[in-house]
Every structure is written in C-alpha cells, then in structure tokens.
Design a protein around this nucleic acid. Structure first.
Length: 285
DNA sequence: TTGTTCATAGTCCAACCAGT
DNA sequence: ACTGGTTGGACTATGAACAA
C-alpha cells in the first residue's frame, strides 16, 4: 500500500505543471486590504520589511521580515495593512496543477515558513521577476524553474501532510491502470480493456484518467511508447526503426514516424543521427 | 454514471526522399 | 533502381464532451 502510494505520487508529480502569472517586488499601498475572498490562483508572499495582517482560512498572522507565506488557491483569505509602515515584499501569483487537481489540494503544507536562507529565496524571486519580463522560450522556462525551486524550498522547509483528497480507491484504480499500460505497452491497448481492468464504463474511464493524470489515456500511452522508442534508439543503433516501432506496440511505421515527430519534434531518423553524432551527450530528452 | 453525437486520432495508401 | 524512411491526404473508428 505504502509502496503503491509512492509510485503514484511520483506519477502525479511527473505531471506537475507550474505557471507564474505575476511576480513583483513592491511596497504595498496604505489602502492594501481585501476581506474574505477566494482566489483562483496560489500566492507566495516573501516579506522583506513592514507590518500587516493576513488571514488564511481560519488562521490569522502578523507576518515578519524573512517569513514566506503561501496563500493557496481555493482557500478563503483576507489581508490588510495595520499602520503606515506597510509591507515591502516579493510576491507572485501562480498555478501548480496536476491534471485538474491543485498541488496544494494533494499535499497540505504550512501556511508560512521561516526563511533561513534569505538571500537564496530573494535571488529566486529576482530570477523569476527578471525572466518574467523577458520574451522567448528560455525566459518562460527560467521563470517557471525559479517558481519550482521556490515551491520545493517551501515544501522542504514545511511539515507536509498528505491530504488524500483522492480516495484511496481512486488511487488504487489509477495504479491498476498505469500498471496495466506498462505491462502491455508492446501490445495493442484499447480503452475497453483498461475500463475492464478497473470496472468502469469506458467513457467514464477516460474522464477519470484525465482528471488524475492531466491527459487522456491515449496520450499517456503514446507518450510512454515514444519514450520507450527513444530509449531503444539510444540503446542500439543497429535496429531498424520498423523493429523499434513494433517493439513499442506500434505496428504501423507510417504512424510511428508521425507520432514520433509529434511528440519529440524530430523524425526518428533525425533523432537517431543526433544520438549517433553526439555519443554520450544525449541521455534522454 | 451512462448514452449520444461530433471531432479527433488512427490507419492506410501513394508519392516522395536519401542513402547505398 | 532498390530499401527504408517520411509525409500529406482521405477514410474510418474511437474518444471526449454534453446532456440527462
């Protein structure tokens, strides 16, 4: 049971998607105040200076310099100033989702942490803010990676409980489905089969799967197949693509080419060439 | 949770390309 | 010119969304 959980949690987190919607460093204005609202995004506040008041759920706080607060999506909260010495803080709005689920619905963390490495956290915020102002793919990646590091820092320095919003019956079902997929990756897998494994209606299975893993089963299966194909291409240079294709359960080489390109951006031969021309450099992508 | 409907993914073919 | 791979397009089966 515990083992199953671990594997599942790993699978959940492999599908974690984070996105920064806004990040700033600012001093709040004297009228900074809002009562009993439920945001549709998460917030981090990293207090640098000043005083004020926060309420997250039923808990009230008077944050201090060096504390980092998490105000999760979907939780009732309030904030306001208490005197003219208002907060100066780094802050950001972000989403962190696994499929349709919010990260902080799956794990329960503290409302705030005492930041021991002030400069470290400050630099992450700086990185997030400056890359948020840039354009291009790299800056989006940088922004998200800074956020991810902040989330990790927060979780690591917080006591974490699993909320288990997903009933363990659901977890077991999900586990049964993904196990079945791994086992039969090389063969044809139909939705009917998967549905039978967990005794769900095929239509419902797809919805169920999507809810927990953020993509339809076919996408998941194909992604796994292409990952496996990449592994095989890297492992052996003498196998033909047709062989590899059928080894990962795709008997149609035309379709294999198409899928491979769709998922990796390269055609199989291009990928093979890249791998062979850079021995040892590409482990996996 | 199920049944229906419409859009999308999967299949197959033909034409094409690149290497030998 | 033969083999193995890629690609666009047309057709069909299947999955996702919607309503109940």
């Amino acid at each position: 049971m515990e083992d199953n959980r671990k594997v599942l949690i790993k699978e959940f987190f492999a599908n974690l998607k984070v996105e920064v919607t806004q990040a700033e460093y600012s001093k709040v204005w004297p009228g900074w105040r809002d009562m009993d609202y439920i945001p549709g995004y998460n917030k981090f506040y990293f207090i640098c200076d000043g005083e004020g008041w926060l309420k997250i759920g039923d808990e009230e706080y008077y944050p201090k310099r060096g504390q980092m607060f998490l105000m999760p999506e979907g939780v009732m909260q309030s904030y306001s100033t208490i005197n003219s010495n208002t907060f100066t803080k780094y802050w950001c709005h972000f989403t962190a989702k696994i499929g349709d689920l919010n990260l902080f619905d799956i794990i329960k963390v503290q409302d705030y942490i005492e930041v021991k490495d002030y400069v470290y956290v400050e630099n992450l915020f700086k990185k997030m803010i400056s890359s948020g102002k840039g354009y291009g793919i790299a800056s989006v990646l940088k922004e998200n990676s800074a956020l991810l590091e902040l989330i990790i820092y927060f979780i690591e320095n917080s006591t974490v409980e699993r909320k288990v919003p997903v009933k363990s019956e659901s977890l077991m079902r999900l586990k049964a489905i993904t196990d079945y997929i791994e086992k039969k990756l090389k063969e044809n897998i139909t939705i009917e089969e998967l549905a039978q494994v967990v005794h769900l209606h095929p239509n419902y299975l797809i919805r169920f799967f999507r809810k927990h893993l953020g993509m339809p089963p076919i996408h998941y299966i194909n992604r796994r197949r292409i990952e496996e194909a990449k592994r095989l291409i890297i492992a052996s240079s003498d196998e033909t693509l047709a062989d590899i294709s059928s080894k990962v359960g795709i008997n149609d080489i035309y379709y294999f080419s198409k899928l491979f390109k769709e998922y990796t951006g390269f055609s199989p031969t291009q990928f093979k060439k890249m791998v062979n021309s850079q021995p040892g450099r590409i482990q996996n992508t």
